[in-house]
Every structure is written in C-alpha cells, then in structure tokens.
Design a protein around this nucleic acid. Sequence first.
DNA 1: TCTTGTTTTGAAAACGTTTACAAGATAGCG
DNA 2: CGCTATCTTGTAAACGTTTTCAAAACAAGA
Lengths: 343, 343
Amino acid sequence: MVTIKDVAKLADVSIATVSRVINGYAHVRPEVRDAVNKAIDSLGYRRNGLASSFRTQQSNIVGVLLRQQRTPFSSALAYAIETTMFDQGYRVLLCSTNGDADREQAYLETMLDMRVQGIIIRPSATTARTVKQVATLRERGVSVAFVDMKPKIASISSVVCDNFSGGYQGMRHLIELGHRKIGVVAGGIAQRGGSQDVGSERVRGIRQAAHDLADDVEIVFSHPFDTASFEVGREAGQAMITGNPDITAIFGTTDMLAIGVMHAAHALGLDLPRDLSILGYDGVLESAVTFPTLSTIAQPIHEMGQIAAMTLIDHMREASKSPRQVVLENTLVQRASTIPLET
Amino acid sequence: MVTIKDVAKLADVSIATVSRVINGYAHVRPEVRDAVNKAIDSLGYRRNGLASSFRTQQSNIVGVLLRQQRTPFSSALAYAIETTMFDQGYRVLLCSTNGDADREQAYLETMLDMRVQGIIIRPSATTARTVKQVATLRERGVSVAFVDMKPKIASISSVVCDNFSGGYQGMRHLIELGHRKIGVVAGGIAQRGGSQDVGSERVRGIRQAAHDLADDVEIVFSHPFDTASFEVGREAGQAMITGNPDITAIFGTTDMLAIGVMHAAHALGLDLPRDLSILGYDGVLESAVTFPTLSTIAQPIHEMGQIAAMTLIDHMREASKSPRQVVLENTLVQRASTIPLET
DNA sequence: TCTTGTTTTGAAAACGTTTACAAGATAGCG
DNA sequence: CGCTATCTTGTAAACGTTTTCAAAACAAGA
C-alpha cells in the first residue's frame, strides 16, 4: 500500500508538504504542488481515510437511525437524506432498528465508536430512552437532529410536518365534498407513545376540523392499536364498513391503512369511489398506484429529508448554531378516490 | 475523552493489558480482568473505533452499492443485507448510485478510503466499468459479492435468481389457464446491458415456455426501453391493449410494470380479471395491494440479501474461500389477477 | 548591505490503539 | 533446590496522517 511517505520520497519533499498539497492548503509553491500531484498520480496514491480520520478524530460519516426501512415512507426519507449528505461530502451509515431498542442501542454505540460527526434519528417507540441517549451523544460532541418527531428537549433540532394541519385539511376536504358521516381509521398511535406523536396530532386536526366546519358531522373512529399496515387497514375497514353501512367516506391516517380500507371495500362489493370516498395520508408512491388512485394528504418527504440533512450539517460545521425546529406543511393531493357525495 | 491510558492508570496495569481485556484475549488473570473492567465502567471508557480501525487497517464496515434505493425491491434487499450484517457484527455503509456512474465511482472510492472489508454490489448499467473497478478492489484485498447479477468474471461470488425459470413458470401459468394470445411488457432491458441480464433472461424463459408447451400461443411483445416503472407500464399497457384487443393476458416482467398495465386496463374500462389476466414479476409488497391482487413470480428477495451477506462474510473471514455462484428459484404466487380463460 | 516581514518548507510530535518481543512470575518436574 | 515450560505482564514500536514549531528562503524597504 502506497503511503504519503512514498509520495514524499518520489517528489523529493517532506511528508508535511504532501499533506498540505492533498488538503489544498496555501503556501505551497506551484511547481512543488505539481510535482507532488505528479507523484501521487504515478504511484496511484490514495489517502488512507482511516488514518486521517483517526488523526483528526472525525470521520465524514453521519449516522441515520430509522425505526423502519422497508416502508415506503422510510425508504423515501432515507434516500433524500443520503443523496443530500452525499452531495455535501458526507457518507451515511444507515441503520434500521426495526423498533428493537437493543438494536438502537447497539447502533448508537457503533456510531459513537466510529466518531460520526452527527446523527439523524427518526425515533421509535422507546422515545424516553432514546432522548436520554441523545443527551449522552451531545455531551460527546455529536450533533443530533430529529426527523418526523418533535423532541421534548427544545435544544435538539427537528424537522416535522404539521400533522395537525394535515388532519384538518383532510377532514375539510371530505366535509367540503359533502360527507357528513365519516370513518377515521387511525392506526399506529399507541406504540408511538406520547400525546405529541404524529398519529395523535392528525386525529386532533381531524376533530378540530369537524368541530369548526360543520355542526352535523359524525365521526366514527377506529383505533387499531397496531402497526399502520395494509392488513390492519383492511381489517379495520371491513369492520367499520359492515358496522356502519351509512358511512360515505373513510379517512385513513396512513396511505397503507387507506389502501387496506380500499381493499375491504372492494371485497365487500362496493363500487369505488361512488359508494365510498377514501382518503389517505403520506403521499407515498403506492398511493398513486391503487385503483382508484388514492387522494391523500401528501407529506413533503424528500424535503423533510433534505432539510434534516442540511440542518444537521449546519450544526456539525458550526457547533454553536442554535437549534431550529422546522415544521413543514402537508398538502392535499386530490386523485380519484374522493368525490362529492351524491345526494 | 477517556482513553485506554486512563483506564490503565486507574486499574494500575499497562495499556497492553487493558487492550487484551478489551479484545478478550487469553492470558489475563481473572482478578486483573475484573479490575480493568471495573475501571472501564467507572470511567465510562469506550474504545476509540477510529484508532483501532486505523491500527488494524480494517473497519467492521461493509459497503453496499445499490443502483436504486427507493424501489420496493431495492429497499427490501437493503433491509435484508443490513440486518444480516448487523447480526454478524458488521455495519453497513449504504449507497444508492441512482444509476449515476460518477456517484458509483465516488462511493467506491469512499469505501476504499474507509478500508471497508467487503462490498456488495447490485450493478447498474455501466457494468463494464464496474467490473473493471471491481478488479481494482480485489487487488486491494476487498472482498466483493454481486447480487441480482451474475458477473462475467467467474471469480466473483454472486447471488441471483433464476430469471429464465421464472419467466418460464409465469408463461406456463398463463398457458395452463388457457390463454393463447398473451402480451408481454418487458421493460428496463436495454439499460441493463448485456444479454445475460435479468430482463432478457425472463424474456428467454417466456419464449421457451411458449415454444415448449403449446403450438398455438401467440406472444405480443412490448419493449419500452426505459426504466421498469409504473408509468412506463401504464403507457405500454394502454398501447398494447388498444392495439391488440384480442389479448387475454398480459405478463409484466416487473410488478410495477404489471401494476401500470392494470391501471391502463382499468382506465380502458376493462373488468379485471375477467377481461384480462395480468401477471407480475418480483413479489414486492405492492403486488399484494393492488386491485385485484396481483399474481406474480415472487423472488426470494430477503433470502437473496441474506445469502449475499453471508457469502461476503465468508470471503472476508477467509480470503481463500472459493467463489460461489448461488442461484435461487422464483415461485409463482397466485392471487386474484390471473384466472382461467373463459371460453 | 542590513533589517524586517512574509512565504515556503521540513523535522518531529502526536493521535489511541494493537502487537511483537522480552522479561518476570509461577508451576511442574526431577 | 534447580531447571524448564507455561502463563502473565509490561515496554516500546508501529500504523499513516495532520499539525505545531521553527528554520530557511526570499522579498521588500531602508
């Protein structure tokens, strides 16, 4: 393996000079610089990243800790973060904890061991524990940013969507279409803990909209305290439709949930969207692919990832940077699954 | 930051002994071991991963280079690889090149700089270039494994599915259902290059099955030389259905392609699956979620990832291990979108 | 020419660990 | 008790880079 020493010898300079050339420092005579570069090329020298990271005690790696990885939302988020980081010269150590607290712990330790400069976390259920660990992280000089969950500690930067407003918008959409008896399938709330969590916020927005916008709205809630998956949506949807045949619209607080509802409706022989309007939440790719295509409250997932990445980068480059809490707006994407109530 | 020296001082031993304890070497007296461990705990010492990686010139990081990241297939694969690696004590540097050769190059260099022990690659279009780079990698002692593409160099391990057999199975399924005029939407072939690529293999299997199993089968091909996306499938499907109204089944060589076809069929007012059977390929989550649910040739994606990971680990642990080419079987998952031809 | 200031360069230390080597301690054996 | 073999421990070098410090070279001003 060719080292900086070999380059120095060939170019007939000291290793310090080679280092200066490599790192683009000033105060190197142009002809020396050229000679060094020539030596580097001819030897095929590559800087030993391990050595330089060791010496400077920092790698250009940032950790990204997601609680899932296979879901459309998570992978879109991961992609956004990764590309942004790449463009800024950082590399990403991607870790999916899959809700396992031990894994989360193990990954955080690995990250610490590797002296990552910063970490982006989409916290899982065990938030309390995570937050405590985050405190430890910051003591060690690691920058931290949360995504998709506002931390209780105000000193941590975060990027979230306004889920209250999203829920509100969605409900308003259904009400404006004339629906008055509306089902809400709100999954995955309990396990996310806290009252400030994503799912509860959406439900809060839904209630508020119903309260604000019409006197005669009736909401039927279904709270499958489970993951917000397709199967859960189907089961909840089936129960809801059979139990409340007069419902004219169902709002799933997750696209996958809504798609599950859609399947239940199909299976029960309903003609969509004529017999039942269905609204989703997230705006993942899959929502564009259902039949009928799913109207949904879209989250700016890519933007979330980008902003989270840039926020973290700001903190890493300038430790004194004060934390910022970014809140992004969700927007209604109207497709084919929601139509005006036929009278 | 507390170092091994501090621990040594507190435990009143040499740093060599501490190192031995940390790394679990033999020849340390139990009481000394305990004392060191106690010192470690009381100081909150954590081994500096950067330093030890530097010293040993290897990190426990493996690189995973995928050409995409947002697709269901890729994220399922990434997840499988990552969890397997984690369980084996390795950490994953995940990189999505997004088909960009420069990015691929940049990532490979980063990986080299970080002295990753091994790399798993799902090669992109620029295979020739990649293969050349891989040669360089191996000179530098980095183990390499391919996934989802059999490399031309026999010395590289790989894990692929038998796409020929998959295509064959799919076609047989449709023929056995009585279909005789069958459309095939085969996307994303050209850009993968080579004749040995995934898409072409599937088409080969399809042709062979038609040839073997019935004299009177007519196949209509559509080759959108583009990514195998939903939109492409929809456009190709629309053209195919309107151009060949007597087709009774369509085989998409990718689930997303097939789902696109399904949408085209819906849009044209066809009643699925009565008017048209549709078959997909991949078995991604989304295929279970369409309406009607999509019959598909399912790939054992998780298994592919697992085996790729374990293969790479074998190579890393024992460099002399001879390469192995694993070929996995695809299996037909029959759902609602394919039914017998009504006569 | 001498002084002063600036630019350019090299020598050497340092980062925190692992590990080769040697030495000290202990045990086993005759 | 003395010798050897084995176990346990410490010393010190090494890994490849960055960076401090100081010296050398040069330029400019007097």
